[in-house]
Design a protein around this nucleic acid. Structure first.
Lengths: 241, 241
DNA sequence: CCTATTTGTGTATTTTTAACACAAAGGTAA
DNA sequence: TTACCTTTGTGTTAAAAATACACAAATAGG
């Protein structure tokens, strides 16, 4: 009788709910050759063993959601991100076949240099980048989550200068142009685009020339100036491509 | 021994986490007299007993997050919303003094006619509207949550026609103008504003005149045409004030 | 019927966006 | 070393959109 009460207490009073809390991280990377890509892991365990999935995992009791994201990403892929923001919380009761799992999805960007570095570790058989237009079949409701993430990235680069988080610290202007063109899926007029971007005054043009990558006239390298950006932002500047 | 195992199983295997899941609803209402207002409840129990707070509560195992929001709103305030979208998930480990509570905040709008109707029920001693610029002291981290919600509403009415969800089905044009002016906190040129809004073709001008509210020339009533809006949206129309 | 209040309406100016083409720099291969 | 290929850099003009601005007409109330 006492035992039953104890179990009842733990199960129904202290824990009235049966919902587990997880985070997922949709991480975008970019290179001129590979285009915009998303980081996925191959699931090592059931359900969906062997399927590709968005990296993520359960939140520990003491850590913040952002800490959970960075820990899981480190464990599963070894990747360090340069930009992170919350995307959306997916909470349908039956989105996981085992038990109810609530997932707070985050949306991350990695710099071009991190793009190649990938380390497969314990939790995942494999981790790899997939071009965002050629994604494999995905576990759970991850396909839908990715669509939300892609829409968010697409919408966001228009009115916030987060595209720079996908490039190296120093980059040729054409990389930025190519990134926007790929993501927005439309051609971009080089002159008009440059005119507009430079008009914000948040890009420093360096004296260094970009490396020669085969053929073509080498261009100057540029660098995003976050300090200037923040200052201008305070003064009411409005970034919009 | 068997008993310990059972408890261990329930507590540590089936339930490795100690996080409770709640939803909160930031509900906006509007009337020309009262301006943009937010629906709050007075807490009946500790912690923060007697403080004003955002309505919300724990998610039941079987219900979706949206269902939880609507149920809690019904229980606590009796208000029915006309627009609901997810706002943000607040997950800091210590945001509630009792135990870790994750809150998925939603953002809702009610039509002007619902604005007055308020019913205080069991869970809250009281429920009331507060002008969004004159908010009382709030429980938990609710102040911060409200700020996020206000920013979201402000940002959103610019590029999505959700302002109509705050008005009656039929409204005089000046109501819309006043709503935008209040929310964006800047004067609006009546002629330019009307020119732009009407250019989208999503407002039907009715033959009825608005009631006389004291003095002034009565104007026509207008009505948001959602069907037309959805059709135009598909054809690539871009709403932006 | 006079006054106060609110609605309705058009044009001119400025600003922003969009369209558009050719010369210069370097790499590579003949 | 030269000819060719690829890529970068640059300015003007036309069209579209945003902004600034003022007065007459309709009603309510005194």
């Amino acid at each position: 009788m006492f035992v039953s009460f104890k179990i009842y207490y733990l199960y129904h009073v202290k824990r009235t709910q049966n919902i587990e809390v997880a985070v997922d991280a949709i991480v975008f990377g970019y290179s001129k050759e590979e285009g915009v890509s998303i980081l996925l892991i191959k699931r090592k365990y059931d359900p969906f063993k062997g399927s590709w999935a968005i990296p993520g995992g359960f939140v520990l009791d003491h850590e913040s959601l952002e800490e959970a994201v960075e820990r899981e990403l480190q464990e599963e892929t070894g990747v360090k991100i340069s930009y992170l923001e919350q995307l959306y919380t997916f909470g349908k009761p039956d989105r996981d076949p085992r038990t109810r799992i609530l997932s707070i999805a985050y949306f991350g960007l990695v710099k071009s240099n991190q793009f190649e570095k990938l380390k497969a570790t314990t939790d995942a058989e494999d981790a790899a980048w997939f071009n965002f237009k050629r994604l494999p079949k995905l576990a759970f409701d991850h396909k839908m989550i990715l669509n939300v993430a892609i829409e968010r990235l697409r919408g966001k680069i228009i009115y916030q200068p987060i595209g720079f988080e996908l490039l190296d610290k120093k980059f040729p202007f054409s990389d930025l142009e190519h990134l926007y063109s790929t993501l927005l899926d439309r051609p971009i007029d080089r002159r008009n685009f440059k005119k507009k971007v430079m008009s914000f005054g948040i890009l420093d043009e360096l004296d260094e020339k970009a490396k020669s990558n085969g053929a073509g006239r080498p261009g100057n390298l540029f660098q995003f100036n976050k300090t200037t950006y923040n200052r201008l932002l305070k003064n009411g500047m409005h970034f919009e491509i």
